[in-house]
Design a binder for these strands. Structure first.
Length: 575
RNA sequence: CGGGACGUGGCGCAGUUUGGCAGCGCGCAGCGUUCGGGACGCUGAGGUCGCCGGUUCAAAUCCGGCCGUCCCGACCA
């Protein structure tokens, strides 16, 4: 492609409100333009990158036996009513009606429709199956973030596995695990697999693939000794025991005027160090107030509570609800002696004695609380948010907490969808059994952004060769001189014949502009052809990632470049 | 959903407090000088000031409503 004919609208100014590096560079480099909140047009450069991501995904899905489909984006509401998601999925699901008044929706994923197709499977002999497609999803996210990291409309590869039993599902899950590792590796991402919460998808087990980046929105805990890794929504840790001071007798009330926080209480009373306090949180689940107890210096991880209760419908109680139910406002709450509320407690409180907690009367607290004796705990549930430096649950080493971008997620769904939608087959004994399903997703645009977050510098994007919109750019300096133009054309032809994707920068621009643009859009290799070296029969060869420049004789240039491109591809393919 | 900001040529913004000719930078077009790291001069094109209504002799500016976008707190590829 001649650059003079390519549409590459690079910008000099940074886009407004661009806190993510990938967003800034994708916009400035002419890869994407925003249409509305959380919705972006892909420009030619962006489309080329997306195509390459999709190609890698297809190759790796096909390699584990995947078969590509293409399912619609608009679905009948009826099928989603059968699966339950028409009513269960709140907010992000866009529902509407056609002219006949039929309920329709925009797909947020495609479990229902793939499962519907799977109802045509009749025999265990038809299994296993692995089906996938690359298709648009629309999720009406309340707050899309700038850039491709978090949008409302996006293309995702989603695949679905169908097996006769758990063992088959486990096998397909493992196959995806390896395929995903290869996909990320080929895109130049060092993704790590972590245990995750299944959230609203249903199903039993899920693994997230994440890439460390400050632009991310998730946190994971990782143990470098034994390899334990989990999203903080799921992670657990060993909590060191606390030696309690002795206390005999009943809890004792003491006045704590205007003290509303754990920290203030700890500061005011030497016996009320944060780890000796019980933090009492009030939530509303299914319309009922429940109390959640964690150690004073610990934080509640809401998702762990949701998963533990098996109830998506959970929210913090409002102050007026709390006042009415408990007789006090947050800051003076406690669970001592209460039996009319469900009480959930974190195991870090188990068998603790001589604790401090609120007295359910504003400005009063209790000391000398014995958890086992004084609090009627209904359920012990690990709901504590893991912190940097906590002890690994497996080996006891220090856990590290990292901010990450979630680039892929794989779920074991089991029969969550196959049962309500009637996808079942006869087994070898002629007994009908629901199909065991898994679902597996990778977002194309989010991965594009994640790659940039990891691979950029102050000049722009540094694409891995596998994703670069072009592999090589030939920059003509003084392209009006016949010798330069001819050398450029000849090299362009030679590279094209070797199957290399080349952009020939024949624009009538000053060299500085051309260099800056090539670096901004991140083309891995640049050949500079100009009078300065052409007189000696040389061109310059520059590696975008290292910045190294070498002189190469014109006659060897095509071979030299082709070899470098091939080496770069091979290095990524090898992982 | 709760809270906060913004909306003015293609892009980034000033002007709004105190109503009075719609401006700046980048980009764009023409001419000239330049030309190996984002050049310079001259000339020029381009705007229903988000939308609707109100106040006023006069509204980008004041008032009301609506829409949109962004940011901070709970969800996901």
């Amino acid at each position: 492609m001649r650059w003079s004919q390519a549409y590459t609208p690079t910008l000099r100014d940074d886009p407004a409100d661009a806190e993510a590096a990938s967003h800034k560079l994708l916009v400035r480099g002419g890869f994407i333009r925003q249409l509305m909140a959380g919705s972006y047009s892909l420009l030619p450069l962006g489309r080329r990158v997306a195509t390459k991501i999709e190609r890698i995904i297809r190759e790796e899905m096909d390699a584990i036996g995947g078969q590509e489909f293409e399912l619609p984006v608009v679905h009948p509401g009826e099928v989603w009513k059968k699966s339950g998601r028409w009513d269960n999925v709140e907010g992000i699901l866009v529902k509407f009606q056609d002219r006949r008044g039929t309920d329709l929706l925009l797909a947020i994923t495609h479990e229902e429709i793939f499962t519907l197709l799977a109802t045509e499977l009749n025999s265990y002999r038809d299994l296993p199956q692995l089906w996938y497609h690359l298709q648009t999803k629309f999720r009406d996210e309340p707050r899309p973030k700038s850039g491709l990291l978090r949008v409302r409309e996006f293309v995702m590869k989603d695949s679905y596995s169908f097996d006769i039993d758990r063992a088959g599902l486990d096998r397909q899950f493992d196959l995806h695990n390896t395929a995903y590792r290869r996909i990320f590796s080929r895109m130049g991402l060092d993704a790590i697999a972590v245990q995750a919460s299944s959230g609203a998808m249903g199903g039993s087990e899920s693994v997230e693939f994440v890439v460390p980046s400050t632009a991310g929105e998730d946190d994971v805990a990782v143990c470098e000794s034994c390899g334990y890794a989990a999203n903080l929504e799921k992670a657990v840790a060993r909590v060191a025991p606390v030696a309690d001071e002795p206390w005999t007798g009943e809890p004792e009330r003491f006045a704590t005027p205007d003290i509303r926080t754990i920290a203030a209480l700890a500061e005011a009373f030497p016996f009320a160090a944060a780890e000796r306090q019980i933090k009492t949180l009030a939530y509303v689940a299914k319309g009922e107030i429940i109390l959640v107890l964690v150690r004073g210096d610990h934080e509640l991880m809401e998702q762990k509570l949701i998963d533990g209760l098996g109830d998506q419908d959970l929210r913090p109680a409002h102050p007026d609800e709390i006042k009415e139910a408990l007789g006090a406002l947050p800051g003076s709450l406690g669970a001592v002696g209460l039996t009319n509320f469900r009480i959930i407690a974190d195991p870090a409180l188990e068998s603790r004695t001589n604790m401090v907690t609120g007295a359910n009367e504003d400005d009063w607290h209790l000391r000398g609380v014995d958890v086992a004796r004084d609090i009627a705990v209904d359920d012990w549930l690990d709901v504590r948010r893991v912190r940097e430096g906590d002890s690994c649950p497996q080996c006891g080493s220090a856990l590290h907490v990292h901010r990450v971008i979630e680039v892929g997620h794989i779920f074991k769904l089991g029969t969550y969808y196959s049962v309500p939608l009637g996808a079942a087959v006869l087994d070898e004994n002629g007994v009908e059994r629901p199909i065991e399903m898994g679902s597996y997703g990778i977002g194309v645009g989010r991965n594009m952004a994640a790659v940039i977050e990891v691979h950029h510098d102050d000049r722009g994007i540094i694409w891995p060769i596998s994703l670069a919109p072009y592999e090589v750019v030939i920059t003509l300096v003084k392209g009006t001189e016949a010798s330069v133009a001819e050398a450029g054309d000849a090299l362009y032809q030679a590279l094209a014949e070797r199957g290399i994707e080349v952009l020939l920068d024949d624009r009538d621009e000053r060299p500085g502009v051309k260099f800056a643009d090539a670096e901004l859009i991140g083309i891995p290799y640049r050949i500079t052809i100009g009078p300065r070296t052409l007189g000696d029969g040389d061109v310059e060869f520059m590696d975008r990632s290292s910045g190294e420049t070498t002189r190469v004789p014109v006659v060897d240039a095509a071979d030299h470049i082709a070899a470098a491109v091939e080496r770069a591809h091979a290095a990524l393919a090898a992982g």
